[in-house]
Design a protein around this nucleic acid. Structure first.
Lengths: 161, 161
DNA sequence: CCGATGAAGTTCAAGCTTGAACCTCATGGA
DNA sequence: TCCATGAGGTTCAAGCTTGAACTTCATCGG
């Protein structure tokens, strides 16, 4: 427990609160568009989209999970539902029967193709359009900084000095 | 349906994917710290923190809900749990019996005071520290831009031109 | 060849969010 | 006075996420 915590300055707090608001509301805004127009959550879309960009439209579930930074448990549930809807198929990996691969079906491909324009338009509308090139640059830098810090997770409370 | 959607450039896509990763993972990282150290979710913390900064430590639920950009239904559930834990109390608003106000208890205040340093340290660690002043500025501008676009929601698909 | 270890994936219970239905209270019109 | 309207809140069912327990498969040591 530190003697005197380093509180945020006004400048920092404004930035943090704005980011927090974004973090709370952007996912549901993007979910809403995809659910309304394509009956997909953003997470579903990312799963299908990742498969669609892979040669063979096929990935191991464990690779997909680390790409998406999600638990295998969550992915397993989502993939099961997507399979029930006929958007992808699961099969044991022919190269090593201890993996499972997911393969996008034609219906899944068609759905990604149909959903992409609306989704990209929403991303443009909510995020990208209206920003200058240097703001987009700064956004990328800041977001990468944050995700790097998060995935490090060396030991949040390490204070052995 | 647009003839040819305006896909993202590489530059734009890098920024968007980084933001998406942040959006998916920062909430759980901050939740994890608060849950581990104070048995609070980030949303719980915001509720208590908002009350703690209000004169009288009291707010109407509907005001709280619009401050937090959340549904009244969600807030009602969360407030019920926080009340069961003795962190706040609900009561009809003395000024107009059709409102309900939530008031932070002493235990709730103590918990916010105890939780704040660790939470701020996590925000610093994951987000603020390591950014330059101009990056913090850009973060605020970009995040405000996004939240403004979201809360507008004039008509996502309006294309009557 | 056999058992131990560990990674990949599934399942289940518990908890949370959402949206719809519902209740209550205040206001406004007849 | 009485009913209609509508905002504030609550509740309930349905769906999703999480973490733990469990199964299966491959690798490694004896």
């Amino acid at each position: 427990m530190p003697d005197e915590p380093r509180w945020l300055t006004d400048h920092e707090r404004d930035a943090w609160l704005a980011l927090a608001k974004l973090m709370f509301n952007l996912p549901s805004a993007l979910d809403a568009q995809l659910l309304r127009d394509n009956h997909l959550t953003l997470f579903d879309y990312f799963v299908l989209s990742n498969l669609s960009m892979t040669p063979g439209r096929t990935m191991r579930l464990s690779d997909l999970a680390s790409h998406l930074n999600c638990s295998l448990s969550r992915l397993s549930n989502v993939v099961k539902r997507l399979e029930q809807r006929g958007l992808l198929r699961r099969a044991p990996d022919p190269e090593s029967s201890r993996y499972t691969v997911a393969t996008l079906t034609d219906a899944g491909w068609d759905l990604v193709v149909a959903a992409a324009p609306g989704h990209v338009a929403a991303v443009r509308d909510y995020v990208i359009d209206g920003l200058t090139a240097s703001q987009i640059d700064a956004l990328r830098e800041v977001a990468c900084h944050v995700t790097r810090k998060i995935s490090d997770i060396p030991e949040p409370n390490a204070r052995n000095g």
